[in-house]
């Protein structure tokens, strides 16, 4: 019994001295939560060197995983980067601090267009800082498609029967049909959603398969003429197969936007703001862009790109191409149920 007492005392002492050390040095630190492979590691070193603020960097794969880890409270995160709908959820749950972006030095590099995208879930642009974004469009094999593709119509007119890959996720598949019909992808009008399902039902015999992750590889391998994919996938696909092209259909599509927020647990708001501002600096944003190759909202970086990259529509879509695009927001319970029922019906045909 005595032995245990000594041991406990020793542990306590050790803990005290350790925490004492921390207090003495008084280094500032930030705990950051981001997707995996979603920031150039050199950027973090650079920030630490320039400011003396220590970064504790954590990664996760999906927004849901981030949410679970965040809300468990085991680690108190200061800054967090995740996808539009999850940011919307965090804002709604009161987990996010307001930040004055206009007072920062480099946030002017972020184009107005992207603040507008963010305003779908952050109406006054007071919480979320755009980081990377992208679109959903058609990746097609130019050797198998005669006319240039500029409309969702190619997926529905039957010309490419059995050569089409559609997304195997409810919202993305319905988005294609809703946009083709000229409706909003965030519609909660049951008639419109049912009309979209009718269209998808008619299309199903022409669809080769419904895939998510493998869609790009199938087009690269020449197994299908076209697939609906995320723009980041399109850029990678082009790297593997030069005959591939990507287009955002003129009817509009879905844009996704990953943003940074400062959580309500953050004590050192100054340091957090320094970090966000640092990310917007041209050289830093360029480093991250070259590491990730998703579309950047940083106009200073876009303007300094090589013409070859600048003209790549999967990386730098023209403003006109994204005019009709919308950010996806979370639907209410009734609409979610409707989507799920209609999707099952579609799959069972």
């Amino acid at each position: 019994m005595k032995k245990w007492c000594y041991l406990a005392a020793a542990v306590c002492c050790a803990a005290l001295t350790l925490s004492g050390c921390n207090n003495k040095e008084e280094t500032e630190s930030l705990t950051i939560f981001n997707y995996g492979e979603y920031m150039d590691p050199d950027v973090i070193d650079m920030f630490e060197e320039e400011t003396g603020i220590e970064i504790k960097y954590e990664e996760a794969t999906t927004p849901e995983e981030m949410y679970t880890k965040y809300s468990s409270g085991a680690i108190s995160y200061d800054l967090l980067c995740t996808s539009d709908y999850m940011i919307q959820r965090l804002i709604n749950e009161g987990e996010v601090q307001k930040v004055d972006f206009s007072s920062m030095q480099h946030t002017g590099n972020i184009g107005d267009k992207y603040w507008e995208f963010a305003s779908v879930f952050d109406p006054d642009n007071e919480y979320a800082l755009p980081y990377f974004w992208g679109t959903v469009g058609i990746l097609y094999d130019t050797t198998k498609v005669d006319a240039p593709v500029d409309s969702w119509d190619v997926l529905f007119n039957g010309d490419y029967a059995n050569n089409i890959i559609m997304p195997n996720s409810q919202r993305d598949a319905f988005m294609v049909a809703l946009k083709y019909l000229g409706y909003s992808l965030n519609t909660s009008d049951e008639a419109q959603i049912r009309e979209a399902q009718q269209l998808l039902l008619q299309q199903k015999p022409d669809v080769q398969s419904y895939l998510v992750d493998e869609a790009r590889d199938e087009v690269v391998a020449g197994n299908a003429a076209m697939a609906v994919v995320y723009s980041g996938e399109a850029y990678l696909g082009h790297e593997y197969n030069n005959n591939l092209a990507y287009t955002i259909p003129k009817e509009g599509s879905n844009v996704w936007l990953d943003t940074w927020i400062v959580t309500k647990h953050c004590q050192n708001v100054d340091a957090a703001e320094k970090f966000l501002d640092f990310l917007c600096r041209e050289d830093v944003a360029a480093m991250n862009f070259e590491y990730i190759y998703y579309s950047t909202p940083n106009e200073a970086v876009i303007n300094s790109l090589d013409p070859e990259l600048r003209n790549n529509e999967s990386l730098v879509p023209a403003d006109s191409a994204t005019d009709n695009c919308e950010v996806c927001t979370q639907t209410d319970a009734a609409v979610t149920q409707l989507y799920s029922d209609l999707w099952k019906e579609l799959k069972s045909e």
Binding site: N168, V207, Q208, S209, L211, W343, K344, K347
Partner: peptide
């Protein structure tokens, strides 16, 4: 192998 086009009961449950 069904390319997401064929829905078995297992797929419904998973969904």
């Amino acid at each position: 192998l069904g390319g997401g086009k064929i829905q078995l009961l297992g797929n419904v449950i998973e969904q």
